[in-house]
Amino acid sequence: MNDSISRRKLITSGIAMAAGASGLAVAASVASHYGLIPPDSGGIWGVGETLTYATQRLLMSHHSLAREFNRSEVSKVIPVSGDPPKTEPFQRLLAGKFADWRLTVDGMVARPSKFSLDELKRFPSRSQITHQACEEGWSFIAEWSGVPLSYVLNLVGVSPQAKYVVFFPFDESWDSLDLPDAYHPQTFLAYNLNAQDLPTPHGAPLRVRVARQLGYKSVKYLSRITVTDNLKNIGKGFGSAAPEYGYSWYAGI
């Protein structure tokens, strides 16, 4: 009798384990299809990272707006982290007040383009006063102005197969956004900070502003934007430079 119980137990738990494993495999493939697996999902922290990203993408509206503030709430101290790129191309453009600077937009788009700063400034602009927190813990409120990224993406015609928008700056801190954040109404290419030209240490001539993620996703010193369906072949394949230094790709939390 004992024997039959243990055999039954063995068979039941065997079936349960097989069902669990195939269930997980199906779940992973469905999750991947719906864009719920972050590019840095490997490694020991992949479980938590995937749970956070998938849950936020599943349960939260893609259009929820970050809080906006009054001009009286703008911080007096706007901290700067990091130095501007010391590389020759950036320094040359900076010396020429970015007159020769162009933003390249390419990849999976119908009309690859280059835009000058003046052209970008002639596009419909958007201003917003938002809170920006650094992953380190400090934060500030500032007013940013620029052109919505969605406007530029619609202008160049993004392929329906595209999944990510990748940002290449003049320094090493390249990054990428999924389409919900790239097309988000508060995501834009900022050229003004508190109604002044973007100061050089804040990312001149143009930086990304992503209101629903931490500060390090707002790439500074922008040079090129590439639209792609696959992040595997860029850098080490983690979706941005951050995971190569031990920081998560998704910074909505």
Binding site: W45, V47, G48, T52, A242, Y247
Partner: peptide, 16 residues
Amino acid sequence: GGPSGWGRYMHFQSAW
């Protein structure tokens, strides 16, 4: 540039 990187990964995984 170090502890807060793995710290954040570990914090959210542990929180889950």
